[in-house]
Every structure is written in C-alpha cells, then in structure tokens.
Design a protein around this nucleic acid. Structure first.
Lengths: 231, 231
DNA sequence: TTGTGGATTTTGTGATCACAAAATAATCAA
DNA sequence: TTGATTATTTTGTGATCACAAAATCCACAA
C-alpha cells in the first residue's frame, strides 16, 4: 500500500507530506495530472471504487480527493452524487478565457522580478521540448509541458492567492483542450513562448504581460473555433 | 433536517440536495456561514471530531467538507494533518485585495444586464439593514448582510467561473475581517452601496465598476491600516 | 424488433474501527 | 523552580461495512 511514487510537487497542493497523508497525496497527484494531461474525458463519469482500484487504494482517500477537486470546479458532483468531468459550453469557455486574461498576465508580472536568467534558460529548454512534442503530435506531452512552462513562470512569485486561482482554471479547461487536440491535432499550434522568454530576459513587464495574454488568446482561440461547434 | 437557510450559493456545491448528500450539505453550509460571519478565529485549529460533535454528525461528512474548504484555500491543512483557519499576513492581504479588484468589478459588470429595478429595490433594503447593523455594532450581522449585498449583485450573472473564484476570496478574508471588527468596531465603516445601487438603476456599467472597486478599497483599506500591525 | 417492468448489480454515503502520529499531561531529576 | 522525559490522551488516516438510491441488465409482452 505504501507506494512512494513521489514525482513532483503539485502546484496548488501543499508540500510533499512525510507519511501523514501520503496515500491521499498520491491519489491527488495522480488525478490532477490526469486532468491536466487530458486523460479524463469530459462527460465521462468517474466512479469511486473504480478509481480506487486503479490506484490500488481504498475508496476513502479517493473520496476526499474527488471532493477537493469538485470544490475547485475541476470536477462536478451531479445531484445524484455521481462525479464527472464537466463538459464545456460556449459560455463556460468564454468566461474561462476572460478569467485567464485577467489573472495570468498579472501573475506573470508579479513573478517577473523573481525570474532569473537561469529561469529563462530553463524555459527555453522546455519550449524546445514543446516544439518537439508538437512535431511528433504527442498531445499529452504537449499539455504537460505547456502547463509546466506557464507555471514555471507564475510560481516564481510568492503568490498565495492568484496562483491557486489560475491552477483551478487550468484544471477546468485542460480536459476539454485534450479533446480538441485529439480531433484537430497539435500541428498548427502557435504560441508566444519565445516572446515571453525574451521579456523575462529583458525584465520587461509590459512585454511579458502582452506575450502571456497573446499566448492565451491564441491557444484558446484555436480551441474555440474548432472545438465548440459540436456541442 | 431540511433547513432552508439559503444565505448564498455555496461556491462549489450545487443545489440543495434531496436526500443524497444531505448531511454533507448541512455541514458544508454550517461551516461556510461560520467562516463568512467570522465565527472561526484565524489560527485556531479546527478538530474533526469536535466539529462533528458540535453538529451532531459523524466525523465522516466533516472530513469531506474540510477537505473541500481546504481546496478553496478557506482552510489550510498543516503538514501534520491539522486543519486550521489561515492567519492573515500583509502579503496575503494585499494579494486578496488585488484579486478582488480584478474579479469583482468584472463580475458586477457581467451581472448588470440581468439586474432589474426589483433587484435594485432589494439591494436598497439590504443596505438599510446594513446601516442598522452598523448602528447597533452587530459585526456578525454586518458581515452576513455585506456578503449578501455583494453576491446578490454578482450572482445575477450566469457566471460559472468568476463567481466561485470570488466566493473563494471572500471565504479567505472574512475570518480576518471579523477579528478586526471585533477590535476596532464597525462604527466608522463607509461603503459605496448607494452608488452601486444607483449605477444599477441607471444600468451604468462604468459607474458600477467604480462603485464596487471603491467599496472594496475602502472596506479593506480600513482593515489594512488597523488590522495587520500586530502580526 | 421494441418498449416495459422487475430483478440484480453498482454506486455514493455515513458510520465505526484500528492504528500511528502528534499533542498534551504528568512525572521526575537537576 | 525548571527542564527534559515519559505516559496518556487526542487527532487524522485509511479501511471496512450496512444501507439506500441509482443505474444497469434481463426477461417478457406487444
């Protein structure tokens, strides 16, 4: 039972627990990364015992994790108690876009003074991997790396408030993104990562805000056009 | 058991469950209103069995609710598993203020087209009660009514994203507000509620944004000056 | 073939329990 | 009296269970 599979620190969650809530943390990490990389399909119901068995734990920690994620609006609890990945609607999508444009440029600007040349170098390496994942069409890797790129920036700031809010937004749109990538592929994805990296090197707040905002609009613009027509 | 005390929509939670998660909803509502009216003291640990006994339920639904609220950053889970109301810091306070100023004016503007003259009338009545609670120095009533005033506005919009984010922010600063009111009283509180109500009557988006922003700055400005010096 | 009704299984919920970690109380030595 | 050390209690965690609601399956009739 005591699987010690510690991969990385979950963004919103707390520090790597010693041995207290180890099982719950394991489940939390597993479900969160599954959501962020799109391994959960919107509309698909998530059963308690099923997930528990997949992860080799009792239903108890799974219950708590699902409650947590429902509180973050990453999952919804239907009136009958069933938990499922929320489906995207046009209104929801527009509002997420609006919220991201409000929060993330601000978050990036807050992080800017804390970002060093070393961080810029690290971001460039991630961006190279992103280009590679686009080339091979590996949507899951692309999503993981894109999340990593953004939150490597945001989490440089000591933010306790805006950062969890942004993380909550990502959890909400990521499963839908994955669906769209599966449908239209990742080939024609364009991003503003190089501009963002340059702005960080130059410590240019306005340029960074603009790069992040453009990246958000660009990325979700593609999704918006092709993804929501069928719903 | 079917207490219909709906002060506001619990952020993540759904409609009043029929009989499925009734106990959990009861606990959720109880803890949320306790936080919003400041009945929980920052820094004070919340014990699982204690809360369960107070509410006359088993520790089980309390566990899930505390996990939910921890996910919304309304409570924090210390590395030893203890749950407590977070303490306010200057940085935290400033960031909450920033986040509120980003989200709530936007939310108000989104709600504006849905707000009728009837709503404006209702808001005026609430504001009268607020003035009364200030007069009698009833801090708990003031907090409940102030929350009601703001979210009567915000929740008029069909927002699914920004509204829960705003609710999360309120859960985070409310306990701290209560502490300050207990120290400096509610006598010298000034708000922009009348300006907001007028802006709603006039359907003037810019004026409403400005009234909400001013109300936030004013209300938290008082807190900021007097409240955080001791920490 | 297609509904339709009842039987069966699956599911979430709340409660209880055993256990280990942590916090608190009590004890004793200096 | 004060400090550390041990004993006791409290606490969160994970597992299991009983139960009711819900979903699924299946037989049967039109």
């Amino acid at each position: 039972m005591g699987q010690e599979v510690r991969t990385s620190t979950p963004t919103g969650s707390s520090a790597p627990r010693s041995g207290r809530g180890a099982t719950r943390d394991q489940v939390d990490r597993a479900v969160r990364t599954a959501l962020l990389t799109g391994r959960f399909i919107p509309g698909k119901a998530v059963t308690l015992r099923g997930l528990a068995q997949d992860l080799g734990v009792s239903p108890m920690p799974v219950r708590e994790v699902l409650q947590r994620l429902a509180a973050e609006n990453a999952l919804i609890v239907r009136p009958n108690g069933r938990v499922q990945v929320p489906e995207m609607t046009a209104a929801r999508f527009d509002e997420i876009l609006k919220a991201r444009l409000l929060l993330e440029p601000e978050l990036a600007e807050m992080a800017l003074p804390y970002l060093t040349r070393r961080d810029a170098k690290s971001l460039e390496e991630i961006d190279l991997e992103i280009d590679a994942s686009i080339g091979t069409g590996d949507a899951e890797a692309y999503m993981r790396l894109n999340h990593l790129f953004h939150f490597r920036i945001y989490s440089a700031s000591p933010s306790e408030i805006l950062l969890p809010l942004a993380e909550s937004l990502w959890l909400q749109f990521a499963p839908f993104m994955r669906m769209v990538y599966g449908r239209v592929g990742t080939a024609n994805l364009i991003d503003w990562h190089k501009e963002a990296t340059k702005a960080i090197r130059d410590q240019d707040a306005a340029a960074l805000r603009m790069a992040i905002a453009s990246d958000i609009k660009e990325g979700m613009g593609i999704l918006g056009r092709d993804g929501l027509t069928s719903e």
